[in-house]
């Protein structure tokens, strides 16, 4: 009934709740702790492998979650080396507490799309349909970037939709739509690509759409600043940028 991708979505969901990070350093290997927005999970997993291959002895460890959760972890002193947020405001929260080594850099962009169940059974074709049709709509709280962007887009289009659930992050939204529990949601274009056909994307007109900017920064207390900078440089390199575009991200 559910393809491998849906299964992957489920696994990702499990991973978010059971995820724990441990900054264990053995003698030979350096562990790089990268805290990244959940929408970056797929490309970053690849980027991590590529970086490890190019730098023997470095192990890249990820903590994917809502940018707002991650920003809070960093503020509370979690052992992160790198923080990549899906919006500026959560990066600002970290920067304003003077926790960054240098100003953050934008390394990718994204835009939004409506997602519907495979086959689009309700024939949703525009933002207006979200208001007109009686449907189950899910999003996140406005503290999570995608929830904030969704509210922004709906406001621009003058559409009012009452959500049926405020999920904790993008993966929660994807699970609800891919499993058919929710009829529609608004997520990043990259998520539609990553879902590999488990959900269907419906375009949002450019006049209502937004550009999500992804900033990345190195944490001041990082013990591995050299490797942290190396990872950021890799993302900004041609190889890194190609990888990101493969997953539907835009260039800064």
């Amino acid at each position: 009934m559910f393809g491998r991708r849906a299964f992957a979505v489920v696994l990702a969901q499990i991973a978010f709740f059971t995820a724990c990070t441990s900054g264990s350093n053995t003698q030979e290997t350096t562990t790089l702790d990268v805290y990244a927005a959940s929408s970056l999970a797929t490309p970053f997993a690849d980027a991590g492998l590529a970086y490890e291959k190019a730098h023997p002895g470095v192990k890249v460890q990820f903590n994917f979650g809502a940018s707002s959760d991650l920003a809070r972890f960093v503020q509370e002193g979690a052992p992160a080396d790198v923080f990549a947020s899906a919006d500026m405001s959560n990066m600002d929260r970290v920067e304003s507490k003077d926790l960054l080594d240098s100003p953050p850099v934008i390394f990718a962009t994204n835009y939004l799309e409506i997602i519907v169940e495979k086959g689009n059974p309700l024939n949703i074709s525009s933002l207006q349909d979200l208001e007109n049709l009686d449907l189950v709509f899910v999003t996140t709280s406005p503290d999570v970037p995608i929830g904030k962007y969704t509210a922004e887009v709906l406001k621009k289009a003058g559409v009012s939709v009452t959500p049926d659930s405020l999920e904790s992050n993008v993966k929660g939204i994807m699970l609800k739509v891919a499993s058919g529990e929710a009829d529609a949601a608004i997520v990043y274009h990259s998520e539609v690509i990553a879902s590999d056909g488990q959900v269907e994307g419906v375009e949002i007109l450019a006049e209502f759409n937004i550009v999500a900017k992804y900033p990345i920064g190195i944490i001041k207390n990082s013990a591995n600043k050299k490797q942290a900078q190396g990872f950021v440089d890799f993302l900004l390199s041609t190889a890194g940028q190609t990888l990101l575009t493969q997953y539907g991200f835009g260039l800064p």
């Binding site: 969901q13 959760d69 503290d143 904790s168």
Partner: peptide, 25 residues
């Protein structure tokens, strides 16, 4: 609860969910 019932104030948002939601805002 959050996986099966979702999270909506008044309908499915119990105390633990409200606590988690409040952590950010």
């Amino acid at each position: 609860t959050i996986t099966f019932a979702g999270n909506l104030p008044g309908t499915t948002q119990t105390m633990p969910l409200a606590t988690y939601a409040a952590l950010d805002s």
